[in-house]
Amino acid sequence: MTTANVVPDQLTVRCVLMRGGTSKGLYFHEADLPAPGAGRDAVLARVMGSPDPLQIDGLGGSRPITSKLAIVARSERADADVDYTFGQVEIERAAVVYSGNCGNISAGVGPFAIDEGLVTAAEGVTPVRIHNTNTGVVMTAYVPVQAGKARVLGDFAIPGVPGTGAEIVMDWARTVGAKTGALLPTGRAVDDIVLESGSVVRATICDVGNPCVWIPAADVGLDGSELADRIDGDSALVDAVREIRGKAAVRIGLCADWRSVDDQSPGLPMVGLVAAPAGYRTLSGTVSEGGDMDLRVRLIFMNRLHESIAGTASVCLAAASRVSGSVVSAVATQRRRDTILIGHPSGITPARVTAHAIRRPPYVSFDLLGFSRTARRLMDCAAYYPYPAP
């Protein structure tokens, strides 16, 4: 629970600052926080520094990928070791969104649970069964362990993170239909979304990990190699993507009016702009070659270009690539039976997918859906925040 401190007009709460994959967030023990509700959310937003576009008076990093949190506790479920709640702290509003999960932050939950003594470590690799309370599904993290603690050093690299680290394998096969109950919530591989302008956008609405809307980049006038300066700075494009997201959200029951999607369902569904493989220049200035990937994607999250690819989006994209007739399968090469190589703004990231055909809709079932990430504990601290205003 939050406690008073020697500083007379501030309170503290213990947390761990961790990088999980290409995201960074605060990891809390559930017992150290107030009970769920407005009071807890006010504490979390204040610790993060919201509302403020720079989050200058808190621990957030002014971007959606650095304004995240995980709340972890031992689980009472027979099929899980820990319960984990993901929170996306909005930047310009004092609000915490719990509508979905984050694959990158999930990658840090296993190491956190081991290092904090919530799970008994086994030398070599320790499987951690993680019940995500946002979606009700269980995923398994295979965490490298050395001397009873999560191993950090290794030779696995992911685009968007400098250097290498110990590979954490995440299995998400049990997250199909996590939010809506179905791989294809509308029952169709492709839906036509009619915009207010009269133009029609083809979309595959898919729910694995988190619901995502996959559309051809060409349908919104892009080629699939754009970076933030081209996407975030184009207000008409951002508005069109918001409209697509809102109208898809209405179709799958996440909001009642597409114009209110930012209030009723701020984070979900995510929208991915997909295109066939081709070379492009990454955020770091290097070149990703078309022959090294199966497709390109530009993911829009919280109305901004994601700097890489969200973990949940990568498994959703992998699943959609195996759906016959989807907009993803139309642009993706399938040179590898169990892997798809995703070209995104920071480089190329693999996702694992093993599927087989079935005779009933959606005519595909998955034996494996997953990805690998690295994670690292950055700081173990007491976070300070001022007493609430009277």
Rank of each mutant, 00 (worst) to 15 (best):
K247L: 09
R337L: 11
D338H: 10
L369I: 10
K68I: 09
S99Y: 05
P111T: 01
A107E: 07
Y363G: 11
L11I: 00
A150D: 09
N101Y: 09
D223C: 14
D83P: 08
D223P: 03
V128G: 03
P362K: 05
A248H: 08
C15H: 00
H306E: 08
L254S: 08
A121L: 04
D262H: 11
A319I: 08
A70P: 01
M379S: 04
Y385P: 04
R377N: 06
R298M: 05
S372A: 15
V13P: 08
D223N: 13
Y142A: 13
V328S: 02
R251K: 15
S199L: 05
S288N: 04
G124K: 06
S225D: 12
V82H: 03
A313K: 02
D192G: 01
R335E: 14
P350M: 11
A357S: 13
D41C: 08
L54S: 11
G60F: 08
A236D: 15
D32R: 02
M139G: 00
T186D: 07
M170G: 00
L295Y: 13
P269Y: 07
G224N: 10
N101E: 08
P144C: 00
Q10G: 03
E76S: 13
E30I: 02
V315C: 07
A141I: 00
A248M: 08
S314D: 11
A318T: 10
P211M: 06
H29Q: 13
H356D: 11
A275Y: 06
A318M: 08
P211T: 03
V125K: 10
V190K: 02
A276I: 03
E167K: 15
R40P: 09
G370F: 00
G100D: 01
V274H: 09
F366D: 10
V323S: 05
D239W: 01
R77L: 14
I205N: 02
K149S: 07
F86G: 00
V220S: 06
